[in-house]
Design a protein around this nucleic acid. Structure first.
Lengths: 177, 177
DNA sequence: TTTACGTGAGACAAGTTTGTCTCACGTGAG
DNA sequence: CTCACGTGAGACAAACTTGTCTCACGTAAA
C-alpha cells in the first residue's frame, strides 16, 4: 500500500470515527500500527497529513471547476461533482478546523470558504441565487450536505453514482416539486 | 446546576467535539469532573444519557408537530422549527448511532428516521415533493443541514433566530431563485 | 542465490484518560 | 445555630492509548 492510499483510507475512517484510536485506524487501513507510525509519526502527524490532503484536494477541485466561469449554478454543479473524492472526510476537517489548535489549517479552510462564498455571492448578484439567505450559510450548508451524502453512500443508504445528483438536486432546487 | 442542564451542556459540547475528554466536558459544563461523574457514572453513562436526551427530544418534537397532519411541507417546516433545541447534538447522535455498540439506541434512531422518511414519502405521493431523490436521502440531508445550521449558529456565522428560515429555505426551495 | 526493503507482531515505556474516592468548604433550610 | 447536601480539588489506581523499537518474515530485484 502506498502512502497516499494509506492516508486516504485513514482519512475516510477518521471521517466516520473522529474518536478512532491509532490501532483502529491502522486496522481500517489494512496495516499494522507500526506501519502507520512509520508513515505518519504519531497521531498529530497523521491528522496534519489528513488535513493537508483535504485542503489540497479541495483546492484542486476549486481550480479544476473554475468557479468564476459561466453561470454560478453550473459552477456549483461542477464543484459538487468534483467534491466527491474528498467528501468522506471533508466535513471532519472543515468543522474541526474551527476547533483546531493550529492557525495554519484554519487559514487554508477560510480561504476555501471564501471562494465558496464568493461563488454564492456572484450567483446572488447576477440574479441566479436567492438573496434572503446568506452566502456563509450556503457555504456551511454545502459542506454539511456533502458530508451527509458521503455518509449516506458509505453506509449504503445511497449509491455512489447518485452523489452528484443528490446534492445538486437538494442544494439547487430543494425538496419541493 | 441541575442534572438536565448539565446534560444539555455536555451534549452540546460533545456535539462540537466528539473527542472531548471528561475533563474538557466537565469544564465546558461548568462543573468539576468529580461532579460530572457523580451525575453520570463514567463516559459510557454520559453518552447514553446524551443519546437518550436527543431521542426523547426528537420524539417529543415529532409528537408535537404531528407529521401526518396537513400539507407535508408545512409539517416539515414545523419539524425544522421544533428541532432547534436538539440541533447542537443531533447529528452527533444520529450519525454515531450507526457506529454505536449498543442495539437499542440504533433502533430508536431508526424509528425516528422512519417517521421522517414517511413524511417525505407522503409529500412525494401527494405531489408536493419531488420524486427523483429518495426519502432516505431527504432524511439524511435534513439531519446534516440541521447539524450544519446548529454549528453555524454556535460559531457565530448565523443568528439563532434565523435557524428555522435558513433550513426551511434551503431544504424546501434550494438556492436557486 | 543474496540483498534491500517494507511489513506485522510483540514488547515496553511513557503519557493520557478514566474511574473512584476523601476531605474540606459553601450554601440553604429548618 | 446545626444539619444536610452538593460541590471542587486533589489524589491515586487502573485502564487505555500512544510512541517507539526490535526481530523475524516475506517479497522483489539484481
Amino acid at each position: 500500500m502506498d502512502q497516499e492510499a494509506l492516508l486516504r483510507a485513514a482519512a475516510e475512517f477518521l471521517g466516520r470515527r473522529p474518536n478512532a484510536t491509532q490501532d483502529e485506524i491502522a486496522e481500517a487501513a489494512g496495516v499494522s500500527r507500526a506501519t502507520l507510525h512509520r508513515h505518519f509519526a504519531g497521531r498529530r502527524a497523521l491528522l496534519d497529513a489528513v488535513d493537508a490532503l483535504a485542503v489540497r484536494e479541495m483546492r484542486q477541485a476549486l481550480d479544476d471547476v473554475r468557479l468564476t466561469e459561466g453561470p454560478a449554478a453550473d459552477a456549483l454543479r461542477r464543484l459538487i461533482t468534483a467534491s466527491q473524492p474528498v467528501s468522506p472526510f471533508l466535513a471532519l476537517l472543515y468543522s474541526q478546523s474551527q476547533e483546531y489548535d493550529s492557525d495554519e489549517p484554519g487559514a487554508a479552510w477560510a480561504e476555501i470558504d471564501e471562494a465558496l462564498m464568493a461563488l454564492f455571492r456572484r450567483g446572488q448578484e447576477n440574479g441566479e441565487f436567492r438573496t434572503d439567505l446568506s452566502p456563509a450559510w450556503f457555504s456551511d450548508a454545502l459542506f454539511s450536505v456533502v458530508a451527509g451524502a458521503a455518509w449516506s453512500v458509505k453506509v449504503g443508504r445511497a449509491a455512489a453514482r447518485d452523489y452528484p445528483a443528490m446534492i445538486t438536486g437538494l442544494m439547487l432546487d430543494g425538496v419541493l416539486r
